[in-house]
């Protein structure tokens, strides 16, 4: 029981996985048109695609910041975070037209710049004595050259 109390688990099952030390967002890719969806989808949504069947895939874990904001008010209770303070939310372009929203980390709020290179990381959001530590995905500054 003690071990379980200290388990770290994703905030929502099926959102991401750590593969060989690297966090990966889990999405779905269409067999017909190759479009990648996040999170995992029931079906392809491309109206021109006739296949529609999808399979699980990992998303690219590096991208560039398309836009962002800083949330100055604490969101309503469904959101839970230890040591709340204003934080940035970014919209990150992962390539092939796929843009994913997520919290930004590892950067001062006044140093965030559209176009900056970012990489996917996983960090604790809150700890709970009964359910353990809950992890969410975030994006952190990355070296631009050679990022893959």
């Amino acid at each position: 029981m003690m071990a379980q109390q200290h388990a770290s688990t994703p905030i929502v099952e099926g959102l991401f996985e750590i593969v060989a030390g690297t966090p990966k967002l889990i999405g779905s890719q269409c067999h017909g048109c190759n479009t990648i969806y996040f999170p995992q989808a029931l079906s392809c949504r491309n109206p021109k695609c006739r296949d529609k069947s999808v399979e699980q895939t990992f998303l690219p874990h590096c991208g560039t910041l398309y836009s962002y904001t800083v949330q100055r008010y604490q969101p309503p209770p469904l959101f839970r975070m230890d040591h709340w303070s204003p934080y940035a939310l970014g919209l990150v372009d992962l390539g092939d037209g796929l843009q994913v929203m997520g919290m930004l980390t590892g950067i001062k709020l006044d140093e965030i710049a559209i176009g900056m290179a970012l990489k996917l990381v996983v960090e604790p959001l809150y700890s709970d004595a009964e359910i353990g530590e809950k992890l969410t995905y975030k994006f952190a500054p990355a070296e631009r050259a050679g990022a893959a």
Binding site: I11, V12, L15, P39, T69, Q71, Y73, Q74, P75, P76, L78, F79, R80, M81, L89, M101, G102, M103, T136, Y137
Partner: peptide, 12 residues
């Protein structure tokens, strides 16, 4: 998802 994973409010 938007609430629990990142707390994204409508104004965001």
């Amino acid at each position: 998802l938007r609430w629990v994973a990142m707390g994204a409010t409508n104004p965001a």
